[in-house]
């Protein structure tokens, strides 16, 4: 067991974790932040993407023990509440960028950092940035439109 202190969405958590506990399982089942979803557990689908020290990473490919002293953001930290969504969440809703919604948290976390780094992206850049997140429902088109719309609103 490892003692860790990790900051998730601004809250500091002190926990004892087993060596092999995946970060995704730690977030979901220990911290009960179940908004981070697990789709493949082998680093392909991107559903479990969280922001680790400012960079989107796959939480199924990290151990909880590796987060000691680090900062994590998950989908639960994006909106103030359901009535006050992050511009990216709002645009996803306005453009119907989600269907079953299972891959959505990973996409939001990937795109949040992408838009911070690329505030005025074109469609090709958005598709490239999205390519590490699989969505089986939407065919991506409405997600691309949502990211464009969010970028536009966030620039204002």
């Amino acid at each position: 067991m490892h003692p860790i202190t990790v900051t998730v969405n601004g809250t500091k958590y002190e926990r004892q974790v087993e060596d092999r506990l995946l970060l995704s399982d730690f977030l979901r089942h220990d911290l009960l932040l179940a908004g981070t979803h697990v789709g493949c557990e082998h680093g392909v689908c991107g559903a479990c993407t969280v922001i680790f020290d400012g960079a989107p990473v796959r939480s199924c490919l990290m151990f909880a023990a590796q987060t000691d002293g680090h900062r994590i953001e998950t989908v639960e930290g994006l909106a103030v509440d359901r009535d006050h969504l992050h511009p990216l969440q709002q645009a996803m809703r306005d453009c119907h960028g989600l269907q079953c919604g299972y891959c959505t948290p990973g996409i939001l976390m990937t795109m949040k950092v992408f838009l911070e780094e690329t505030p005025n992206p074109d469609e090709a850049q958005i598709r490239e940035a999205l390519s590490g997140n699989l969505c089986r429902c939407t065919g991506y088109q409405h997600i691309v439109e949502a990211v464009k719309l969010a970028a536009e609103r966030m620039r204002k």
Partner: peptide, 23 residues
């Protein structure tokens, strides 16, 4: 009409219940 979905806020905030979320 192209109405925005009722279910989205829960899904977008990570608050929708999926089977693996049942503890």
């Amino acid at each position: 009409a192209p109405i925005r979905r009722n279910e989205d806020p829960r899904l977008l905030c990570g608050q929708a219940l999926f089977v693996d979320d049942v503890e």
